[in-house]
Amino acid sequence: MGVLDKIIDAIVNLVVFIWDNTCAILNVVIPKLEPGHVVPKGAPGHGQKWPPYVPPKADDSRSACPMLNAMANHGILPHDGKNISFQELNTKIRQTYNFAPSFCFFVPRFAAGFLNKSYFNDRFELEELSMHSEKAIEHDASLTRHDVALVPDQGKPDQRLVLDLLKTATGKCPDGSPQMTIPDLSRALSRRRADARKSNRAYSESFFHNLFGSANSATMLTIFGGRIDDLKPMLMEERFSDNWEPRILDRFGLTMAKFNFTVIPVERGVDPKKFQ
């Protein structure tokens, strides 16, 4: 990346930061969405009615992200997981999960960057997002996948890992059903990082990847409200549970600013030494 490109990138990131914080402030002063009306009218999932779930075929492209795979499995993204534009991904994530528009621009643009593609002009397939490198977002010690050095195909969840994760839930929803908590996720990540260090000779981690791992986990608490009844089909089959909708009711969606209030406590609670 040349000097000019770095300057442009810094300016764009500054604008996104201001945009995101503006959305966060507006979310405080503007009335929230009504439950049952989070997904916008005309978008798949409006009224808690999702397109039919169709499992992926052998030649379909899938990523290491359950939430993106679910969108393909329900036909919100192309079912084969191919020929997707970054701008399409932006729009569909916003509609499906109620992330803030700033968030939905930042992440696909970041993905385009580590794939050396143009956010505005190029297309990709889901499998490409599983690229394992220091600059990419795929990381070791995932809660739903074994490391890429051990299992190169990151498109399918490991059922045992997911079941072990779901069993760690100690919270309770108002109706008494099990619910994941911040300490639960910190503990699960601690165990996974300790186990991955032992089983994977090529294991690597960095502050960025650890934080991103905690961010992935934090979506379970924010978008899914930690509810095991919703997380089980999402993480095991990569599909939406019946009558599901995002638990974020903010009118401008989940901002990065607000998200960090969950991500940082999750990561601060991680201590792999407890499981060595």
Score class of each variant (00 low, 15 high):
residue 150 L to E: 11
residue 254 L to P: 03
residue 271 D to G: 04
residue 165 L to S: 11
residue 60 D to G: 09
residue 58 A to L: 12
residue 191 R to S: 04
residue 205 E to C: 12
residue 78 P to T: 01
residue 125 E to M: 04
residue 78 P to A: 06
residue 154 Q to H: 10
residue 183 P to E: 10
residue 25 I to L: 13
residue 207 F to I: 15
residue 99 F to Q: 01
residue 85 S to A: 12
residue 134 E to S: 15
residue 94 R to E: 13
residue 182 I to H: 01
residue 13 N to I: 01
residue 20 D to E: 09
residue 233 P to F: 09
residue 206 S to I: 06
residue 78 P to Q: 07
residue 213 G to E: 08
residue 155 G to S: 11
residue 273 K to A: 13
residue 220 M to A: 06
residue 105 F to C: 01
residue 85 S to T: 12
residue 73 N to F: 00
residue 57 K to E: 15
residue 42 G to D: 11
residue 140 D to S: 11
residue 36 G to I: 04
residue 194 A to W: 08
residue 99 F to D: 01
residue 66 P to Q: 06
residue 243 N to V: 04
residue 69 N to Q: 04
residue 104 C to H: 00
residue 88 E to Q: 15
residue 183 P to D: 10
residue 206 S to V: 06
residue 66 P to C: 07
residue 95 Q to L: 07
residue 122 D to H: 05
residue 175 D to C: 14
residue 59 D to R: 05
residue 137 I to A: 12
residue 236 M to Q: 11
residue 158 D to W: 13
residue 113 G to Q: 15
residue 249 L to T: 05
residue 76 I to F: 01
residue 153 D to N: 15
residue 267 E to C: 05
residue 10 A to M: 05
residue 1 M to H: 09
residue 247 R to V: 01
residue 197 R to I: 01
residue 175 D to E: 13
residue 198 K to I: 13
residue 110 F to S: 11
residue 214 S to P: 04
residue 106 F to Q: 07
residue 122 D to Q: 08
residue 212 F to Y: 11
residue 264 I to S: 03
residue 27 N to G: 15
residue 241 S to G: 12
residue 274 K to L: 11
residue 80 D to T: 11
residue 134 E to Y: 14
residue 189 L to G: 03
residue 93 I to L: 11
residue 30 I to E: 09
residue 68 L to H: 03
residue 67 M to K: 04
residue 120 F to N: 11
residue 64 A to W: 08
residue 14 L to I: 02
residue 225 G to T: 06
residue 136 A to D: 08
residue 231 L to Y: 06
residue 16 V to S: 04
residue 17 F to V: 13
residue 211 L to K: 08
residue 242 D to C: 04
residue 182 I to Y: 00
residue 110 F to Q: 07
residue 91 T to Q: 14
residue 244 W to A: 01
residue 57 K to H: 13
residue 266 V to W: 02
residue 263 V to I: 14
residue 266 V to E: 02
residue 246 P to S: 08
residue 213 G to V: 07
residue 255 T to E: 02
residue 141 A to I: 03
residue 201 R to M: 12
residue 174 P to C: 10
residue 43 A to V: 08
residue 197 R to Y: 04
residue 235 L to N: 00
residue 193 R to D: 09
residue 57 K to Q: 15
residue 120 F to H: 12
residue 66 P to A: 11
residue 152 P to Q: 13
residue 141 A to K: 05
residue 123 R to Q: 13
residue 95 Q to K: 09
residue 127 E to P: 03
residue 60 D to M: 06
residue 195 D to W: 13
residue 240 F to P: 00
residue 180 M to R: 08
residue 187 R to M: 09
residue 206 S to M: 05
residue 240 F to I: 02
residue 253 G to A: 07
residue 143 L to S: 07
residue 19 W to V: 07
residue 105 F to Y: 15
residue 87 Q to H: 12
residue 207 F to V: 15
residue 265 P to H: 09
residue 214 S to H: 08
residue 45 G to Y: 04
